[in-house]
């Protein structure tokens, strides 16, 4: 390992993961070849979980990587980067991930809610990090981009609600257009 300065690059996240309270993977994304196979990844996750689930310490150096983490009820969120990476960048991504998920789950950050909204969580993770590059680190912007439908409303009503919201959107865009044409 050399001087400790990383090659200047946008690629700074090695992996993101959400595990449950037994250390099982609910969602994990690896962005480089540190752990090439799913088997190695899961072994790593298990070891990481064993090291982190008791002590709520937020950051750990583990197997030559820096891992920042956060937990709530039965969920564990991890962001993993190189040991030379700026720890605060990793922490900012972790916060974005956690806050975005929390907003999607309406502050109800637990396994069951997460699994019910897994599609939205997948989309949120996709908006946070693309191939190892931090795409967006502002949780509100992420949730806005994911723009998930309201899951709590049963099927029948939801279509109505959707219709309504769509109508509203059309209405708003018409309003916008009108405004612009007036401004011109």
């Amino acid at each position: 390992m050399d001087g400790g300065i990383l090659e200047p690059s946008l690629y700074c996240i090695k992996a993101l993961a959400i595990l449950d309270n037994d250390g099982n993977r609910l969602m994990a994304k690896y962005y480089d070849e540190t752990f090439p196979t799913a088997k190695e990844q899961k072994v790593f996750e298990k070891n990481l979980f064993n090291k982190t689930h008791r002590a709520n310490a937020e950051i750990i150096m583990f197997e030559g990587l820096t891992c920042v983490y956060k937990s709530n009820v039965d969920l564990f969120f991890y962001v993993i980067g190189s040991t030379q990476e700026n720890e605060l960048i990793l922490a900012s991504v972790l916060n974005a991930l956690y806050d975005a998920v929390s907003q999607i789950l309406r502050k109800n950050v637990e396994k069951r809610a997460l699994l019910e909204n897994l599609d939205a969580v997948f989309l949120a993770v996709d908006e946070i990090c693309d191939g190892g590059i931090v795409l967006e680190a502002d949780s509100t912007a992420i949730v806005h981009k994911v723009a998930i439908r309201n899951d709590d409303i049963p099927l029948g009503e939801q279509t109505v609600a959707q219709q309504l919201s769509r109508k509203l959107e059309v209405f708003q865009s018409a309003k916008e257009q009108l405004k612009w044409s007036l401004l011109k």
Partner: peptide, 8 residues
């Protein structure tokens, strides 16, 4: 107060 910052 932030552990990550202290760690870094």
């Amino acid at each position: 107060p932030k552990p990550t910052l202290r760690f870094a």
